[in-house]
Every structure is written in structure tokens, then in C-alpha cells.
Simulated assay, not measured.
Amino acid sequence: MKLPQDWFRADLEDKERYGKELNLEMLPGHFLFSKSIEVYAHRDDATDDILCRHIDSDDLYTVVHLTWSMRPEIDNVHPTVEFHGSYEEFLQYNSKLFN
């Protein structure tokens, strides 16, 4: 699948780095806590957004805005879920951000 211009497919190192931070930030009760996901892509270095693919679903993705606090967050709303839906819906969501 082709990613939007400002997104980059996560390589193994990216998956480990972003995934580690995501798991560190999430508290029980967070929308993604205990879900089977993998970091699929990340936006360019100017943002802290990652695109996660749900492993147990054919076409389900979530955009998460990491805080890079390097510790668990203060509540289960952070890191913030910016988008949740199909890949086509992700493309539509992303295009609306820049129009």
C-alpha cells in the first residue's frame, strides 16, 4: 500500500523504537492497551505520529500521537488516538489535514 507523502514505512528499528515508546506510555484502560498492533509507519520527524496496524484485523489502523515522555502517561487518554479506521479512511483523514 502506498503511504501519503509525509509518511514513511517503519523498518525493524523504527518498529522497535516507536513500539517501545508506545508500550511505555500506555496505561491500562487506554484504547490500544493489550491490543495486538504493530507500528506500520511514522510521519516525518517533525511530528510524533505513528500509524499502527491491527494484527488481528484485515484492514484496521490507528494513528497515535506519542508524547515521548519516556514514562507512563498520567492518564489513559494519552498517548492520543488521532484516527481509527480502515486504510482508505486513513488516507482520507490524512488528506483532510493538509487541505
Rank of each mutant, 00 (worst) to 15 (best):
P4E: 06
P4A: 08
Q5T: 13
W7F: 09
W7A: 01
F8A: 10
R9N: 05
L12W: 06
D14L: 04
D14K: 02
K15W: 00
K15A: 13
K15D: 05
K15R: 15
K15T: 03
E16P: 00
G19R: 08
G19I: 03
K20S: 11
K20I: 00
L22D: 06
N23Q: 12
N23D: 12
L24S: 05
L24Q: 06
P28Q: 14
P28M: 15
P28V: 07
H30R: 12
H30A: 08
F31A: 15
L32I: 11
F33A: 06
S34D: 15
K35P: 03
S36C: 09
I37E: 05
E38C: 13
V39D: 03
V39S: 11
Y40N: 00
A41R: 04
A41Q: 09
A41G: 04
H42Q: 10
R43E: 12
D44A: 07
D44T: 08
D45G: 11
D45L: 10
D45A: 08
A46I: 08
A46G: 07
T47S: 13
T47R: 07
D48Q: 09
D48N: 09
I50Y: 00
I50D: 03
I50P: 05
C52M: 07
C52D: 03
C52E: 00
R53I: 00
R53W: 00
